[in-house]
């Protein structure tokens, strides 16, 4: 696993994240027990990924620091909610998105194929975390996006996801 549970939790805590709003996939799911064990993070479970962006928007308007955690397929599902909160409300929300299929050589997974083009089409500033060495990019990118007042995404490379 590129980002083990203890690392995502310590990173989120270090960034001052208050709430993790998530719908996990099989690669992100193992983070659950560590997230629940954190005294600084509240875990909010959603039924569809679109809910996550809008809950995060309400949290941020209410003075908290949310982090959205979903799979790239959930990003596709949540397009209208994402559009609304990032571009109509102009809230600098941040998401960690599992990048299904990225680590599978020769993957023909459509989720793998369309993830980055969709992020580019939305104009969302993202970084790719494709190895353990790249893990620090998550915190660096979060801080840079918050400082600039813009939304951001950290793509976390996965296998089949």
């Amino acid at each position: 696993m590129i980002l083990p549970a203890h690392e995502i939790v310590s990173t989120a805590e270090g960034l001052g994240i208050s709430h993790v709003v998530w719908l996990p996939d099989s690669a992100l799911g193992p983070w659950e027990s560590e997230l629940l064990g954190s005294r600084k993070l509240s875990l909010v479970r959603v039924c569809r990924e679109g809910e996550a962006w809008t809950i995060a928007a309400g949290l941020q308007l209410g003075g908290k620091r949310p982090l959205v955690v979903i799979q790239c397929t959930g990003m596709f599902e949540s397009g209208d909610a994402l559009r609304n909160v990032l571009f109509d409300l102009r809230l600098p929300l941040f998401a960690v998105i599992g990048y299904r299929g990225f680590l599978v050589p020769g993957s023909t997974d459509s989720a793998r194929h369309y993830t980055e083009p969709v992020l580019k089409a939305w104009g969302i500033d993202y970084v790719l975390i494709d190895s353990p060495k790249a893990a620090p990019k998550l915190a660096e990118h979060y801080r840079a996006c918050q400082a600039a007042g813009r939304a951001g995404v950290a793509l976390v490379a996965e296998g089949k996801g």
Binding site: V46, T54, I55, A57, G58, Q60, D80, A81, N84
Partner: peptide, 19 residues
Amino acid sequence: IPSAMGHAPMLALGLALAQ
């Protein structure tokens, strides 16, 4: 508004959790 059909309960939930 505009164009937030279906999203209001979740925005409200985020506010409720924050406040």
